[in-house]
Simulated assay, not measured.
Amino acid sequence: MATRNIYETAFDEDVQHKSSSSNCPECSGHVATNAVETACEDCGLVIDDQQIDHGPEWRSFEDDDSNRKRAGTPLTARRHDRGLSTEIGCRTDGKGRVLSGSKRCQLARLRREQTQGRFQSKAERNLAHGLGEVRRVTSALELGGSIRDQACQLFRSAQREDLLLGRSIEAIAAASVYGVCRCHGQPLVRDDLVDVARVDHSGVTNAYKTLNRELGLPTQPVAPQSLIPKLASELDVDKRVRRRARTLAERAHESMVANGCQPSGVAAACLYLASREHGQSLTQTQVAAAAGTTPATLRARRTELTELIDGGVRVAPA
């Protein structure tokens, strides 16, 4: 048997050895154990290998463990491959040094081949396009990271249930964002979503109905008070008007006056009544246009709210 010198290790082996009390079963020689294998120092017999590494799964580039680093980023639902794809750089290497012209040309060819081979099927290509659209919409609407990740997961579920067949990918992506916002009770006006989405209003509406029907989304009804801050900001009203409008909206929601009514219409009526109480000149047309409703709807909700308010606040129509 050829003798192997265990001190001549490869680049990924640990040269720190530990003596063992047992003897070699082949020659009864001295046995040493490192992080990779247990071998005899006399004859080179490998007694045991592929041992379990009981060390930490992180490494630190400092003197202590305050700067822990792990290999790679965590898995994410935002990418079609969960974030495990390879990213090839352009002009600099890992240490920030500028690459030569020949090396940049070589990396350009590698990037082109890597881009062509990153999708294994048409479904995977559609998934990548849809997740990219979800990220674009959530970024344009300045939504949080949790909304973005859950919308990406909802889009994955829609593709898994074959809901993309015969439908627009952009519509399903926009409906996924809208559906997650509805599930969390976060106010999102559908018109604002249509402004940044690459699909019309009917496309988003039909796609959302499909997701809600087929996947059974736990959507919550939109409360009128959740629309007051955005509406007040668009109309640039005073803080007193905003607080009074929110109080009226909460009272309408608790007394079930807003049941079966358009939430934006109730919010517009509350803000209009509050502005009239505090002497701020806002017309019904201005408030209705900002809320995305009609003056007729605003007047109908105003009448119901006037009867609800203690003391019967009476305001003259603008």
Rank of each mutant, 00 (worst) to 15 (best):
L227P: 13
H201Q: 00
K209G: 00
T285Y: 01
I228M: 06
R125T: 14
F61W: 14
G292W: 08
G72M: 04
R78P: 03
C181K: 01
C24N: 03
G179E: 00
L298V: 15
V287R: 10
G203Y: 09
Q262N: 13
G101M: 09
A207L: 00
Q120M: 10
H278C: 07
R190H: 10
G94C: 04
T92P: 07
E277N: 01
E142Y: 11
G166V: 09
L298S: 08
Q286I: 13
V241Q: 03
R167S: 06
R97Q: 15
S102Y: 14
T293R: 04
R190C: 10
G216F: 11
D49K: 07
A300G: 02
R198Q: 13
A171H: 03
G166Y: 14
L164F: 12
G311E: 10
G101W: 02
A171Y: 14
L211N: 02
R104I: 07
R198K: 09
N23A: 12
L231Y: 10
D42A: 10
D191F: 04
G94L: 12
Y7H: 04
R160T: 05
T285P: 04
R301W: 08
L143A: 04
S22M: 08
T303R: 06
T9Y: 12
S168W: 13
T283W: 06
L215G: 01
S85C: 02
L165K: 13
R91G: 01
E214W: 08
P56W: 07
S275K: 04
T9L: 12
R240Q: 14
L231Q: 03
A268Q: 00
T306E: 15
C152W: 14
V257F: 10
A274H: 11
G185E: 06
D236P: 03
E214L: 01
P295L: 07
P218W: 11
T303S: 03
T76V: 15
L235V: 06
N34L: 01
A207Q: 00
R135S: 12
A140Q: 14
L84T: 08
T297I: 14
E214Q: 13
D93A: 01
H30T: 13
A289N: 10
R111E: 02
S264G: 13
N67Q: 07
R111C: 04
S121F: 13
V257S: 00
R190Y: 09
C181I: 11
L143W: 13
V36H: 11
F119H: 10
A245K: 02
P218T: 01
D53Q: 14
Q280N: 05
C270Y: 03
R246Y: 05
A269T: 12
G117D: 00
A290D: 01
L164R: 01
